[in-house]
């Protein structure tokens, strides 16, 4: 599905990404975790075609990404800067569907269906400022769903909401994936979250970032906020990733 080959990027003299290789298989959910400021967002922006990386390649289904690819959607961290405040929830979800040549009515119906899936059936005509942060992020997720992308990128999607909402949204992403069979790349700085939602966790080093490790998450599905987090395998993975992210010298040395 997605293949990133030796991706490197520098802003001026500052090297941010130093040769990243990673891949996301069909229907796979890969979490990318790394310390704050390690270039996770730059990685996502390169994949989305929003910036042109200095080196390396991004391939989606074998085709190099030049501009923003067609069947890709993004959920950004900051919903207040990605939802359009002058459009209602349904308007926000329906807007990207214009390019799909759908009629006004078909767009509206698709938007309502997507909002229903994220549990916002009754809030279609609310404006972003009338909704809580968690609801706004649900709208952003609905917008991505209605677009029916083959690949969904999520950039710290739950970093701006409270803990309870975050858990709800994590489960929402898992439910969405079960229903749609889309490939998802989720970027986060939260180690617990990366393990909880991921099929695989890719760990980045400090900036300039490279991939330290790619760990398969071998946990039973469906996952459960309480039970899954109690499992010994979960705790072990979390600790392992924690050490990698903190970059303890003895562990980094092993690479």
């Amino acid at each position: 599905m997605l293949k990133v080959v030796n991706l490197a990027h520098a802003y001026g003299d500052q090297q941010v990404l130093a040769g990243i290789d990673l891949s996301v298989g069909d229907g796979e959910l890969v979490s990318v975790v790394g310390p704050s400021g390690c270039g996770k967002s730059t990685l996502l922006r390169s994949i989305a075609g929003l910036i042109k990386p200095s080196h390396g390649q991004v391939l989606i289904n074998g085709v190099p990404v030049e501009q923003t690819p067609d069947d890709l959607a993004v959920v950004f961290q900051d919903y207040s800067r990605s939802l359009f405040p002058w459009l209602s929830a349904a308007g926000n979800v329906a807007l990207p569907l214009r390019r799909k040549g759908m009629s006004r009515r078909a767009r509206r119906e698709a938007a309502l269906a997507a909002l229903d899936q994220v549990g916002l059936a009754g809030s279609a005509d609310k404006y972003p400022f009338e909704m809580s942060g968690g609801m706004q992020q649900r709208v952003a997720i609905a917008r991505a769903l209605a677009y029916r992308p083959a690949l969904l990128l999520m950039d710290e999607p739950f970093a701006s909401v409270d803990a309870q909402t975050r858990e709800d949204l994590e489960d929402l992403v898992l439910a969405v994936r079960a229903n749609h069979n889309m490939s998802i790349l989720l970027i986060t700085h939260d180690i617990d979250e990366s393990v909880y939602v991921g099929d695989r966790v890719v760990v980045l080093t400090r900036s300039p970032a490279t991939v330290t490790e790619s760990l398969t998450v071998d946990l039973p599905s469906p996952r459960d906020q309480i039970a899954t987090r109690e499992l010994e395998a979960f705790v072990r993975l979390r600790s392992e990733i924690g050490r990698l992210v903190r970059g303890r010298p003895d562990l980094v040395g092993e690479q």
């Binding site: 989305a48 923003t68 993004v74 359009f84 807007l95 990207p96 390019r99």
Partner: peptide, 9 residues
Amino acid sequence: DTAAVFGLG
């Protein structure tokens, strides 16, 4: 960014 990602003309 959002407009670009969702391919608005």
